[in-house]
Design a protein around this nucleic acid. Sequence first.
DNA 1: ACATTCCGTAAGCCCAAACTTACCGTAAGC
DNA 2: GCTTACGGTAAGTTTGGGCTTACGGAATGT
Lengths: 109, 109
Amino acid sequence: MAYTSALAALADPTRRAVFERLRRGPVPVGVIAAGLPVSRPAVSQHLRVLKDAGLVRDEAVGTRRLYAVDPRGVAELRAWLDRFWDQALDAFKAEVEGKPQPTKRKKSR
Amino acid sequence: MAYTSALAALADPTRRAVFERLRRGPVPVGVIAAGLPVSRPAVSQHLRVLKDAGLVRDEAVGTRRLYAVDPRGVAELRAWLDRFWDQALDAFKAEVEGKPQPTKRKKSR
DNA sequence: ACATTCCGTAAGCCCAAACTTACCGTAAGC
DNA sequence: GCTTACGGTAAGTTTGGGCTTACGGAATGT
């Protein structure tokens, strides 16, 4: 159940900006920070969270580290979301076909 | 771009529990709160956030309000996620086929 | 060897948000 | 009518997390 940490990771706007920057391809930390209004250590911390969530993988090349989107983390989130997708469509279809009983209120106790 | 608030909404564990409870079908607020270790007002507040994010819709029936998953919010999240999915697969394929240039370091400035 | 570039980590601050208690409105049952 | 069940809102408290500054380590270039 790593989708929990993935959702928590993508909740933050700055972290989402980092993640979306990675969509174009592998990028070193400094380049990411240069395009954002936060310091480089902040970006490092965000990348750590994304990595722990399985959304990102890194590769050391010289003194730099290239970060890239990890398809596995994205796949896990997708799978979790799809469960809601299927159910919601079923419920919607069921409601269109015929309203159920109005559900009586429970007696006092 | 309502996926931003949707991600923020699903980041909280309690709110996610509420949302997952709704996966079985429409439920009144009290029933949700009964199954969670938080107070009923807390659940009300969480439902408000989920509703503002477009993930949930509500329907008044008597003194109760039935909450249910809103497929539209889920669809929006799915669409956003899929953009990463496609890109990540492309990048992975490109990397397998042939490593790009090692990327020289920039001179001092 | 030294200097430089790149990056991760520690410590600390500060604000957003999740929670509780208390209150009020509304609809249904008697 | 009154009472009771249900639920949204306000106010206040507290904890978590995102940020900065400062530091240390590792690899490259000369």
